[in-house]
Design a protein around this nucleic acid. Sequence first.
DNA 1: TATCTAAATAATAATTATTATCGTTTATGA
DNA 2: TCATAAACGATAATAATTATTATTTAGATA
Lengths: 151, 151
Amino acid sequence: MIEHHRQHVLQAQFEQACREKGFKMTQQRLEIFRELAAASDHPAAETIHRRLLPKLPTLSLDTVYRTLSTFEHHGLITKVDTTESQARFEAAGEEHHHLICRKCGRITDFYWQRFDETALPPDIDRWGRVSKKNVTLYGICKECEESGGRR
Amino acid sequence: MIEHHRQHVLQAQFEQACREKGFKMTQQRLEIFRELAAASDHPAAETIHRRLLPKLPTLSLDTVYRTLSTFEHHGLITKVDTTESQARFEAAGEEHHHLICRKCGRITDFYWQRFDETALPPDIDRWGRVSKKNVTLYGICKECEESGGRR
DNA sequence: TATCTAAATAATAATTATTATCGTTTATGA
DNA sequence: TCATAAACGATAATAATTATTATTTAGATA
């Protein structure tokens, strides 16, 4: 029931975003947005496609790519900074940062208000105007440490 | 003369690294390493290939990729965190961070000792063991601001 | 110094990730 | 309801990277 309510609210918000940004609200876009809003694992386009196929059997991978690109240009989602070749996405939300495990590759969010509030080094001003600050921490997560990386 | 000396020292260091890590020192590897050590623009594999062709006309792009991969595995170079599809590389050196211009795409190094010395949020410990901390700042550089991004 | 051998190279082909083209379908506004 | 531009799915193309293989070469050894 609560889940059902959340879905409803999410859908309403998404419909409004489409109207505001001036693009059409399609079933495909709604589901892709929902999937991203619900996911906490920063899925790649292919992952999203795979997850939605049961619900939208005709959904093409190409539509997923196009839709993600549209969402990104309108600021609804962002690409994650990685060294991987596959792009990874997340719904735009509160300012946060990422932990990446070198063994399993999992990307985890974390929050760091102290950092967010810290002033940048003064010489950055000479470079230009900064609009976003990302921290990425690399290491080995507990699960990999304990299991030796197999999971 | 000074340049010549630097080159010589660099080559000696590289030769030693090869011996230590146990891989062969080839002309190709030396030149790729030199190119990366001299570059400040975090070149992609293709860029390095293009730059070296005049000097090594038979150098294959594939060798550049393989060599970069070898260097990376041995910690001589690192991939830069980006949202681009092409991987960008830099020689391993002092701890530093990156500025990325959203218009021209240029990646610039900056140093931020205050950050490097700052403790991570305590709950990170529950995630695992962190071995590297990267900051990436996005914005618009002075040149793009002034020129409207054309250059 | 010449010889040997495993490692590295270049050429080629293959794979993976993403984007473009185009004919068909559909959301939205009149 | 209808018209139309936007979005879709199928297909093909491109871009980035990796694998295969025959040839070459760095570095160890005689």
